[in-house]
Amino acid sequence: MNLQIKQEDHENTHHLHIGGEIDAYTAPQLREALLPLTGKEGHETLVHLGDVNYMDSTGLGVFVGALKSSKEHGSSLKLTGMTSRVQRLFEITGLDEVIDIEDVKGGSK
């Protein structure tokens, strides 16, 4: 049960490639990687979730926190490449309406 995070930076754009499981145990790790990025004004953070095979509500909480932080600091946050299982979580919780999620076909909602 662990989480892999790989970060790539291109000037003001940051890519986080996440793999593994996001749950109560690994969520703090994700938060530590994500929040410093959303706290930078004018920066764009793209979170790639294609290799995440499990996420629970604590993981959603991290993205809620990141969304609030990006609004507060004037940065942008986008999630991309999530599996249908993970996407379902965002849909049930209505978070797909407030967080920018790029679906697999490439278009942004």
């Binding site: 809620v64 969304l67 609030k68 049930i92 919780t93 209505g94 978070l95 309406e97 407030v98």
Partner: peptide, 30 residues
């Protein structure tokens, strides 16, 4: 519902379960 896992509705006459769908954002975000 506020972003809650959908429940079910059981229709006894048809003997069928359906999803009790609700659309709504979780509490505490916006």
């Amino acid at each position: 519902g506020a972003g809650h896992e959908p429940g079910f509705f059981y229709d006894a006459e048809k003997d069928e379960f359906e999803e009790l769908f609700t659309k709504g954002l979780v509490l505490g975000v916006s």
